[in-house]
Structures are given as C-alpha cells and as structure tokens.
C-alpha cells in the first residue's frame, strides 16, 4: 500500500499525457516550430499552478503523508552544466519526440520500437556516469 499510491498517481499522469497528446512526436515537433499554443499552454499552466502549490506548501510548512516537513532540494548553481547538458537533452528530445516520461507511456500504448529509445537513454545515462569526472560542471 505504501508504494501502491505511486502506481495510482502514475496511471493518472500517464492518462493525462496520453490524452493531451504530449506523448506525440508531432506535438513536440510542432512546439519547436512554434506552430501551436498547445504545448506552451500545458507547460505554462503546469508551472503557474506548480509555483502556487510550491509557494503554498512552503508558506504553510505542509507536512507529507509520512509526517515530515515537505522539502525541496535546491539545485547547485552552474551555467555550463545546465546549458550544455540541457542542449544535449534538447537535441535528443526534438529527434525522438519524447522525454523520459512519454517514453514509458508510449510502451503502454503499444509502440514497442520506443524500447530502442529507452535502451539508448539508459546507455546515455551510463555514458554520463563514466564521463562525469571529465565534464565541466
């Protein structure tokens, strides 16, 4: 039961991104061409509401279901790490039209060739782990 709630939230998230066509390669391509508002509306409204939620949680010192204070890990400042890492990510995102969340959802939708992308993403993560000491952070 402790883990089951994450399964239910996952189902909800999977349905939302699927019904919203966020998992569609075409929606991502359309977004990068600035041809439609759809994806910007989704990310924009999620961030505005998310910011309100985050502010509210901090403001009220809300506790998690486990009873501890909900905490947010601040991200350590760096420019090259986020800019260069982000650029690599963006190149891949625009190519395969899926970020990690949608990759998994597409498996559930029966697009099994997406496994090639997932295997690639695991290899990419491995490559980062190996090169990490040599990369500027």
């Amino acid at each position: 039961m402790k883990l089951f709630k994450f399964f239910l939230v996952g189902i909800f998230f999977g349905i939302a991104l699927s019904k919203g066509e966020v998992v569609s390669w075409f929606r991502i391509y359309e977004m990068f061409r600035f041809d439609a508002f759809h994806m910007y509306g989704i990310i924009g409204s999620a961030v505005v509401l998310g910011a309100l939620i985050t502010w509210f949680i901090k403001r009220t010192s809300m506790k998690s279901v486990e009873g501890s204070l909900i905490k947010f890990t601040p991200k350590k400042f760096s420019i090259p790490r986020y800019l260069v890492g982000g650029t690599f990510f963006g190149l891949g995102w625009a190519m395969v039209g899926a970020c990690p969340g949608p990759m998994y959802i597409l498996v559930g939708k029966g697009f099994f060739t997406i496994f090639i992308v997932i295997i690639g993403a695991i290899i990419g993560t491995m490559i980062y782990g190996v090169l990490r000491p040599k990369l500027p952070h």
């Binding site: 891949g92 990690p100 690639g120 993403a121 290899i123 980062y128």
Partner: peptide
C-alpha cells in the same frame, strides 16, 4: 536514429541534472 536520440536524451538529462519533469 532512435538509439542516438535516446542516448542524447539520457546523457543530457543526467548532465543537466533533470529532464522536463
């Protein structure tokens, strides 16, 4: 195409310390 795209997403997400979510 699919494999290299996946590698870029995986490498970039970890280097940047996170993906879209």
């Amino acid at each position: 195409f699919l494999l290299i795209g996946g590698v870029l997403v995986g490498f970039g997400a970890r280097y940047a310390g996170g993906c879209t979510s």
